[in-house]
């Protein structure tokens, strides 16, 4: 039982970070129809920038956290403006190649600037675990869950209440109608990338605090695919639910199956789920079922 709960909590923590990443992915996909293969690299860059400002300039963690958000916001904004803007109306495959290219470039830049060694954050969260119901939980886990919940709450408020947020959903729904309303669709595209970069950076910073940072963090970008396929490509709720589910399932699989099969179940499991979902329910849990009339 204890093992189960321990796995469950790790799963929720990792899952909530998947949820953030998938939120960014879905946002871009919904608003701009771009399948973003560079999501993991956005996370990587965010994590390294936060690490760099805390370690090299001795900025307090919270301030460097905020700085990272501002920087990644601008980065996402300009990535769209410089690279993706020209690709509007181009074939899907070209756009996918572009995002794959972007991911390689970003990873290479990170290696050039920061190298490939695993680096760790200075102790931001106290190492003493919290004990809840006889179960010891590391503090960084708690903060991570807490922060992700706050971010998701803020974003749902933003999408519900603010004029720009409503406009973003309107663009996702019907671009031309949004255009006829005077909504600046191009700015909304850029904003989607900016927000996607910010949420990924938040995920990256917490992952960095849990495991340390090296370039393999960007592999988290690949896990986004099982998550969004399970949740439904174009559903924000789906991204969050899918993220948590995949996080929990892969950790349970890791805990219970790894001893039996000798390791690797954790890495494999999300993709097994992905294939199963594609076979049984191709639009995922919350995705829109597209019916094409001929």
């Amino acid at each position: 039982m204890n093992l189960f709960l321990q796995l469950l909590i790790t799963g929720i923590v990792i899952g909530s970070i998947y949820a953030l990443l998938a939120l960014g992915f879905t946002l871009i996909y919904k608003a701009t129809d771009v399948v973003n293969f560079a999501q993991g690299e956005l996370l990587l860059v965010g994590a390294y920038i936060c690490l760099h400002t805390t370690v090299s300039y001795n900025v307090p963690f919270l301030a460097s956290f905020a700085l990272t958000l501002v920087f990644t916001f601008l980065m996402g904004f300009f990535i769209e403006k410089i690279f993706l803007r020209r690709m509007i109306g181009e074939p899907v495959i070209s756009i996918i190649m572009l995002t794959i290219g972007l991911s390689s470039v970003m990873r290479a830049l990170v290696i050039i600037v920061w190298g490939t060694d695993t680096r760790t954050f200075p102790e931001v969260f106290s190492q003493v675990p919290v004990v809840v119901f006889g179960l010891s939980i590391s503090r960084v886990y708690l903060y991570s869950i807490f922060a992700v919940a706050i971010f998701l709450g803020l974003f749902s408020l933003f999408f519900k209440k603010s004029k720009i947020g409503v406009a973003m959903r309107a663009v996702a729904c019907d671009q031309q109608a949004a255009l006829s309303m005077g909504i600046d669709v191009k700015r909304i595209f850029a904003l989607s990338w900016a927000i996607a970069a910010v949420v990924s950076a938040v995920g990256g910073i917490f992952l960095g605090n849990i495991n340390g940072i090296n370039t393999s963090l960007s592999h988290f970008g690949l896990k986004v695919f099982p998550v969004v396929i399970l949740g439904g490509l174009d559903s924000i709720v789906g991204a969050i639910v899918g993220g948590l589910l995949i996080g929990i399932l892969e950790n349970l699989a890791g805990g219970y199956l790894d001893p039996l099969v000798g390791g690797g179940a954790k890495e494999l499991f999300p993709f097994v789920i992905m294939v199963l979902v594609l076979m049984i329910k191709p639009y995922g849990l919350f995705g829109t079922v597209k019916v094409e009339k001929v």
């Binding site: 409503v166 959903r169 309107a170 729904c173 019907d174 109608a177």
Partner: peptide, 11 residues
């Protein structure tokens, strides 16, 4: 061309 996923007021 109403925004189908949005509520009336959000539209």
């Amino acid at each position: 061309r109403v925004f189908k996923d949005l509520t009336v007021e959000e539209n």
